[in-house]
């Protein structure tokens, strides 16, 4: 190695050969083309959303609207309870984020830092559950929610009412403490030394206080990443809300938007405007917290 190192050094600092320059140009061409494929549809969506109906079906691929209008956005909010959809989505995504951060870090901490018999078993069952495809539990989860005792007009035996169906709880309860959140936070707590809590423990501090005051502040980055990812997942989820929510005032923005997609007669202007509005929150978060999101994804492969 010692003899080859200077040689490699020399190779690296040589001015670019013709071959290298062609390679560089080819690289730029390739990445720019791929970016066009990934970004263009979004730009076209934005552009379509600002065009009047006649121009949408006439102005072939003009990216800049000739007579820009916000009529499509107005239509979205006046012809459907879109503001209500947005509110529902915000409430549900924020509730999901809060519960997952709380229970995820509490559970993750217990599995990472507390000694108790049965820890391995609990961990094993959580882990094994990740292998079960969501579709298997879909119908029974619906049944559990519908026949939940004393909920939504149900009696003690779960009869008589609709349980938690068509309520916020139908989304919040099943997703409140995802196994994923527990594992994610466990990973972060494990990287902290056990000694941190010992002094406080000897002084007689309770376990919850040790968790909140000593360990929790150390995993702030983990909480940020998990929070962003949970919010996005909650905001974007579709199949489950589609199943358990069914009146217009309860729908989430995704389920509401889905009803805009129709047959040949679809009104593309409002559909594109709705798409932009529904994507705005996650796009804004992505713009500001991109570093955390990329970290969250790569965290997975580095561990």
């Amino acid at each position: 190695m010692t003899t080859t190192a200077p040689v490699l050094q020399a190779i690296k600092h040589r001015p670019m050969s013709k071959r290298q320059r062609i390679g560089r140009v080819a690289w730029y061409v390739a990445v720019i083309l791929i970016s066009l494929v990934t970004v263009m549809p979004l730009i076209w969506t934005l552009s379509t959303s600002l065009k009047p109906a006649a121009e949408i079906l006439g102005g072939y691929l003009s990216l800049i609207p000739q007579s820009p209008t916000i009529a499509n956005y107005v239509a979205v909010f006046t012809e459907s309870p879109f503001a209500r959809y947005l509110l529902n989505s915000f409430v549900l995504a924020i509730a999901g984020t809060a519960t997952n951060l709380f229970f995820g870090s509490l559970g993750g901490y217990a599995l990472a830092k507390l000694h108790f018999t049965g820890r391995k078993a609990v961990f094993g069952v959580f882990l094994g559950s990740m292998m079960i495809p969501g579709i298997v539990t879909m119908i029974p989860s619906f049944i559990v929610l519908r026949y939940f005792p004393l909920a939504g007009g149900n009696d003690l035996f779960g009869q008589g009412g609709v349980g938690f169906i068509n309520s916020y709880w139908a989304i919040i309860l099943p997703g409140a403490a995802g196994a994923l959140a527990v594992f994610f936070m466990k990973q972060f707590f494990e990287s902290l030394p056990d000694e941190m809590g010992e002094a406080a423990r000897i002084d007689g501090a309770g376990e919850f206080r040790i968790f909140v005051q000593i360990y929790l502040p150390q995993v702030a980055a983990g909480l940020a990443i998990l929070g962003i990812m949970t919010f996005q997942a909650g905001w974007n989820s579709f199949l489950w809300p589609l199943i358990v929510l069914n009146t217009p005032e309860m729908l989430t923005v995704q389920v509401g938007l889905a009803s805009f997609i129709g047959d040949h007669t679809t009104n593309f202007g409002p559909l594109m405007a709705g798409t932009i509005v529904s994507s705005l929150p996650v796009l804004v978060i992505f713009a500001f917290a991109q570093r955390y999101i990329v970290q969250g994804v790569s965290f997975t492969s580095s561990k």
Binding site: S129, M130, I132, P133, G134, T137, M138, S141, P174, G175, G178, A179, L180, A181, F183, F184, M229, T230, Q232, A233, N236, S237, L239, W240, G296, V297, F299, T300
Partner: peptide, 12 residues
């Protein structure tokens, strides 16, 4: 969490 099939789960 496996129920609501989202990209995030896939990522983590």
């Amino acid at each position: 969490s496996a129920l609501v099939d989202t990209p995030v789960e896939v990522q983590v």
